[in-house]
Each structure stands twice: as C-alpha cells, then as structure tokens.
Design a protein around this nucleic acid. Structure first.
Lengths: 127, 127
DNA sequence: TCAACACTTAACTATATGGTTAAGTTTTGA
DNA sequence: TCAAAACTTAACCATATAGTTAAGTGTTGA
C-alpha cells in the first residue's frame, strides 16, 4: 500500500505551504467546513485560498462536495499516512545519530558509520 | 522541540521532489558519499544535482564537508523527525477513518470480521 | 423577481523550481 | 608542471507557485 512517487510529490508539495497546513489543521479541528468559513481567518483573497484548496484537492488531502451554493471540505488523511510511512524509514537514522556522535567522540577513527561499535544506551528499538 | 513554520516549509518542499527523495534514500543506505558519487545514477547534469543538494542543505536535511577537492554529504534526519511530528497530529484522524470503514463493514455483515480493525495505533511514544 | 451570497474563472504579475550548457576554481597525481 | 578530477558559478529557459483584481455562474431567500 505504498504511494506512488508522484502521489508523494503532490502530498509533500501540498504540505510545504503554511496556509495549506493551517487549512488542514482547521479541518482537523473541525471537519466539513465551507470554503468561505475556511478562508475567513486568512489575510488573503478568496481566490487565493481557492487555489490552495485546489492544490489540497489535487493531492487528495481534501474532498469537496457541493450542496446548493456552498462547498464543504472534508479531510482525507490517507496521503499523509503514506508520507509518514515514507519518512518512517529514517526514524532509525535519527535515533541512531546520538549513537554515532557518541561513537565518533569516543574513538577518533571515523569509519563510514552505519555500524556502532559501542554499547547502546539500551533504547528499545520499536518499529 | 517543534520546528518553526518556515523550517517545515523548507523540509516539506525539499521532500516534494523524487530526485531529492532518492538522494536522501541513497544517503540512508550509505552515508558520507561524495557529490559525484551521489549524482552518478541520475539522468541529469551535475549542476542539476547540485541544485537539489543545495535545497537539501538549505532545508538542513544534509550537511556537506569539503576534504581536498571532494565534498561528502551526510544525512541529517532531524528535520524529517519534525515533519513526522507534524503529520502525527493526523494519525488519529486516519485511524478514525479506518474505524469508520470498519464500523461500516461490521454493519454490512453482522460479523466482527473486519481484517484491518485497529482500534489504536498503540505506539508507545518513548521520550 | 432579483439582489445578495458563495463560490469560480480569467487575466495578470512576480518569484521560485528544475533543468540546460559553458566557463570558472581548486586539488591532486603522474 | 600541468592536465584531469571534482566541484562551482553564471547565464539562460520553461514551467509552476502564490498572490492580485475583476468579472462571471449558480442558488437562495425576502
């Protein structure tokens, strides 16, 4: 169930803007809000917010449904889960960086890392 | 220990390109590689790869060190951890969506036969 | 009916990305 | 010493973002 590369592209690109992250955060706090309600707190024009919603929609992070003249947006978190799954690969790496620093400080010989030759501080390595 | 908004901007933007994700993946597989070694498998010019490395560097995802005429790149996973922390807020949301699906499937057929029924992520957040 | 509401589209501007080729710079080794 | 290796910088191009204002499309309710 891994996401395609272009799907990850769209997801990360969508998340790279503070306005869009704020929009998602608003939906996370309260789902099913109209476009104008979502746009209200932002210091920019409605068309500008619309473009952000378009990008979120294209990335599959929200879904829009029109009822009468109002359009309500709902959060679709699945692509974020895929993004998180991609990032999870590096979890072992950042937890090990403490160890690597310790190993480096301990022995002046800097081998190409990746393998600690020192005792671990007994950190349970969960997935 | 949360990242600033502009730091998240840079991190997500850096991750939004498949070439850059591949560069990070190469470093994850083997750290401390030179620029030309990293660039070698990509079907683009060296300056193009350089620009990607600049963006990764600006986002703090890699660090470069010059020794003689070669520049070696090392992975810095910390900003990814911050990005993951931001995404984690939505974890409850997508698990809710699974639950909603599971509830729907349960109501469809009167059995608790939903395969992916996960009630909680149950990930003990070690500190 | 018809004006106000809730978007939507269009046209435009400025800047950033993602790539190119060509021409530097600094180090190294024969 | 001097050419080649390993980057780096510069100049350019096409496209995408991120915003603007202005005008257009449906829908609703008084």
């Amino acid at each position: 169930m891994s996401a395609s590369a272009s799907q990850l592209d769209a997801t990360f690109a969508a998340l790279a803007d503070p306005t869009r992250r704020a929009l998602l955060a608003r939906l996370e706090h309260k789902d099913n809000q109209s476009v104008s309600t979502l746009a209200q707190p932002f210091a920019m024009s409605l068309p500008a917010v619309m473009k952000h919603l378009d990008i979120l929609d294209d990335a599959g992070l929200i879904r829009r449904a029109k009822v009468g003249r109002t359009v309500t947006c709902t959060l679709v978190a699945k692509p974020m889960e895929d993004a998180m799954a991609w990032l999870a690969r590096y979890e072992r790496f950042w937890t090990q960086q403490f160890d690597r620093l310790a190993a480096y400080l301990d022995s002046e010989q800097d081998r190409p890392a990746a393998k600690r030759r020192r005792k671990k501080p007994a950190k349970p390595n969960r997935t």
